[in-house]
Amino acid sequence: MVLGRIGLTVTPEQLASQVFLPGRQGSLQIEMLSGARRNAALAIEIPSTLEALMRETAAGHPVVVLLNLGLSWAPSWHYAVVIGYDLDEEVFLLRSGPMKRQALPFRTFELTWNRAGRWAFVALPAGQLAVTVDEGGTTHALVAFEKAAAPEYAAMAYRSALVRWPGSLTLQMGLGNSLYRLRDLHGAEKAFRMAAHSHDAAVAWNNLANVLLELGHPDEASRAAEKAVSLGGPTERAARETLGRLRARQ
């Protein structure tokens, strides 16, 4: 389904065991998102508008939607993938369960989608971004992606987001942390240095200090750690720990 379309290979059985909770009839929405992320697909929730849904579809992004095919008090939940639409025929084209191609009239689609809270997300390969999601939503999705996916995919995704929002501290730190997990220390150093200089943020100086120490520059590391401590804030304790560790080594 979606994962196959973006070039990832997972069998339906593998996916079902990851997202299907036998106790309930179906998969939870959160499980759908993390299931995609665990399989290296960047899952981003998109705005609850038909316009957003159509813009993503037009951009070639498959959109997973939750539909309630029943009634609000007798719901029949169902996930489907919107793969296209036809403005002349006024239908959405869906991949829906075993049906490879189901044409659902706009009106029917909207009613069943409304009844399910107008919930939708795109699942993309790392390096692509949703066209309708703002910086906050994308950052949120990326942080969750970093936790679930392999660090090389996380780094790729952060890089592409930094092209669009180069000034974001969270994205810069995410790139640095992903590269650090990949043990690309020089890459991580560059990312943290950039975050430290452009935002003068304690979190960036702290992580830079750790990387510099591992790269064998204890003096510069100490200066960075001192900077992190002097900036204070909610992460001051971690910064003090870094500095303490550095001093213990000297």
Partner: peptide
């Protein structure tokens, strides 16, 4: 003492 992205966010 590395600060994770989640904490930054």
């Amino acid at each position: 003492t590395m600060i994770g992205t989640e904490e930054v966010a």
